[in-house]
Amino acid sequence: MDNMLWNRLSPEAQAEVDGLIAAGRNIQAIAVMRERLGLPRPELRDCIDLLAWRHGARNE
């Protein structure tokens, strides 16, 4: 599955977010997403959806 927000993150930021998710640090993962995605800054809801998508993608 393709996710436009995920694709906007650099590979380093993607690895950082995945590491935070693996550690159960979801709030920090969302903060990194919002910080690293730049402008236009994504809505909180979009980051929560991305977090859920990454949880699913990591468990496949």
Rank of each mutant, 00 (worst) to 15 (best):
M4V: 12
V32L: 07
V17K: 03
G38D: 02
V17N: 02
I48L: 14
E12F: 05
N3I: 02
Q28H: 11
W6L: 09
E35F: 08
G38V: 01
E12T: 13
P42F: 02
M33R: 07
D49H: 14
I30V: 10
R8Y: 00
E12Y: 04
A22L: 09
L37M: 10
R36I: 02
E12N: 07
L39E: 10
A29D: 06
R41S: 12
N59I: 14
A23Q: 09
L39G: 08
N7Y: 00
G19V: 01
A23R: 09
M4Q: 11
N26I: 06
W53G: 08
E60L: 15
C47Y: 11
I21F: 04
E35P: 00
A57I: 12
E16K: 08
L50E: 08
A52K: 15
C47D: 13
L39K: 14
L50Y: 06
W6F: 03
D18A: 08
M1A: 14
R8A: 01
E35A: 15
L39H: 12
L44H: 12
L20S: 05
L9R: 02
H55W: 12
D49C: 05
A52L: 15
N7H: 00
A15S: 07
L39S: 12
A29Q: 08
N3S: 10
Q28T: 09
H55Y: 08
N26L: 11
L5F: 07
L9E: 05
P40F: 10
R58W: 04
P11C: 02
I21H: 01
R41F: 08
L20E: 07
I48P: 06
L51P: 02
L9G: 08
A13T: 11
E16P: 01
L39Y: 12
N59P: 01
G56A: 14
A15P: 00
G19P: 02
L50Q: 11
I48F: 05
A13E: 06
V17C: 04
G19W: 00
G24N: 06
V17F: 03
A22E: 11
D46F: 04
G56M: 14
E35S: 15
N3P: 02
L20N: 05
N26Y: 14
D18M: 10
S10N: 04
G38C: 03
R25G: 05
R34V: 10
L51Y: 12
A13F: 00
P11Q: 01
Q28K: 13
D18I: 06
W6C: 02
N26G: 10
N7L: 00
Q14G: 04
L5I: 00
E16L: 09
A29W: 12
D46P: 11
L37C: 10
R36W: 04
A13D: 11
W6I: 01
V32H: 03
S10I: 07
P11V: 01
